[in-house]
Amino acid sequence: MTYTSYTPTQSTNAISTHVWLNGVTKAFGDLTVLNDFSLEIFPGEFVAVVGKSGCGKSTLLRLLAGLETPTRGEIVLDGQRLNGLNAKARVMFQDSRLLPWRKVIENVALGLKEQARPRSHWALQQVGLDSRANDWTTVLSGGQKQRVALARALVTQPHLLLLDEPLGALDALTRLDMQRLIETLWQEQQFTALLVTHDVEEAVVLGDRVIVIQEGRIELDVPINLPRPRSLADAEVNRLKQKVLNQILNY
């Protein structure tokens, strides 16, 4: 029952998205959240975005998901201008947003048309929760719920994974496990990832690049060229973390 012979398709086509934001401005009434914002993310890259609350980092993510439309400027994905919802992207939210009236596996299978069962089992195996496939989501712990949400995001093998503070509500130990899991799955599946977080440590541990947004603009863009998995005990990780923190705190 839990065993599945499903193997994901590894197409020769691009399995990750190239993202280009070209002079994007987003305003809500008089409030300009993002101001002439430009950013390029390369296929397969893991970009971590940090900043204080209200700096516009969540708006950036919602724009990329197609949940908001830019007031000015354009978002280009693989050479095509984004219009409406982004079908290549999946979002993992801070609250897991699982449907409580569906079992775990049915949550993962949401919106799937073909091979829904085997693919969902495959995705649950990836996050180590296939044994809970037929449980209600309400009996799961916070960390388990987020793992189910991750499986739901990965089941369609998205080209772009948008992570909206997905670990913000988890305890410290669970968060470390989840960081490792996200990193492993990203390495295996090679999608492009954008992580929005307020946790600078998390950003430095996971990102190929860490971007600091302040008042709707990129104030710092640091590449993190360190081997993975990264440890917080590493001096270089700490130096970069301090650098990012200083930028945020001294602004």
């Binding site: 197609g66 947003r97 949401l110």
Partner: peptide
Amino acid sequence: LIEMGRVYG
């Protein structure tokens, strides 16, 4: 949940 449903196609 409705927003999630839309994002998930």
